[in-house]
């Protein structure tokens, strides 16, 4: 599944009652910004490599957090990461992210499922961890 095929597939499809708004992010890497209807606040970014399709949504940045409770937040994030469906929690640079990786052989339905789940999980996680914001 390459970025072009995926852009076309997502633009025309609905999955579990959701529509997808796809926008390519300009730059050297093939990156898509996908907005899932009903979860527009947390866009999912998608990139395709040789070994995986990586989808990720931003939660918050390090400087937005209350440093006093950082350890507690990390502990909770680690614990929630395991039961979260199709998503894991992580950090890249200063960004805390929720992400999911799929096999490059995944079909459009699997990718759409991932996108919907990830966008909804991002909202749930933001609301869950709201108290840790500075």
């Amino acid at each position: 599944m390459d970025i072009q095929t995926l852009t076309l597939a997502l633009g025309d499809s609905t999955h579990a009652g959701r529509r997808f708004d796809v926008m390519p992010i300009a730059g050297d890497e093939p990156v898509l910004q996908v907005t899932v209807s009903g979860a527009e606040e947390t866009p999912v970014y998608l990139t395709v490599t040789d070994s995986q399709i990586l989808c990720l949504a931003y939660l918050f940045d390090e400087q937005e957090l209350n440093p006093v409770h950082l350890n507690e937040l990390h502990e909770n994030m680690l614990r929630l990461s395991v039961p979260m469906p199709l998503s894991s929690l992580g950090k890249t640079g200063d960004h805390y992210v929720v992400y999911g990786a799929l096999s490059p052989t995944s079909g459009a339905a699997e990718i759409m499922q991932e996108l919907v789940t990830l966008a909804e999980n991002a909202i749930d996680l933001l609301q869950t961890f709201e108290d840790y914001l500075a």
């Binding site: 890497e29 040789d50 990720l56 890249t92």
Partner: peptide, 20 residues
């Protein structure tokens, strides 16, 4: 190699998203 390459890709991708 996969770990190294994925790491690079994630960094480049997030940098690209932030810039945009």
């Amino acid at each position: 190699l996969q770990v190294v390459k994925t790491n690079e890709r994630v960094l480049r991708t997030t940098a690209q998203i932030d810039t945009n």
